[in-house]
């Protein structure tokens, strides 16, 4: 559940989600669930000309299983906290 908890701290921040089909979408993180399904608002597709059907879409739900990367806003990652949480989870806490 660590990354689920971590993603919840990013709600309201702007992230770019890159999918396994190379589609990359930037938007404000609206919510995330246990499967790391992601909901974005105010979305825009990075290469809009290549995906014209996405122009009329302003918010979306992305299935966790199709995500390749999530590009995070710089400064939103506190490595120390993540580090500690990782250790604690590894110990079964």
């Amino acid at each position: 559940m660590l990354f689920y908890s971590y993603f919840k701290t990013l709600v309201g921040k702007e992230v770019t989600v890159e999918l396994k089909n190379d589609l990359a979408i930037t938007g404000v993180l609206h919510s995330v669930d246990q499967y790391l399904n992601i909901k974005l608002t105010s979305t825009r597709v990075v290469d809009e000309a290549k995906y014209p059907h996405m122009m009329s879409v302003r918010n979306c739900f992305i299935r966790g299983s199709v995500v390749r990367y999530v590009h995070l806003p710089p400064g939103s990652v506190d490595v120390e906290i993540l580090h500690d949480a990782t250790r604690r989870e590894a110990k079964g806490g």
Binding site: L19, L23, H53, R58, C60, R63
Partner: peptide, 19 residues
Amino acid sequence: RGENLVLMGQLDPNHEAPP
């Protein structure tokens, strides 16, 4: 079937067709 879904978005009701 869910495994085939990549993403779903709400369509802007005013600009449903691609501009």
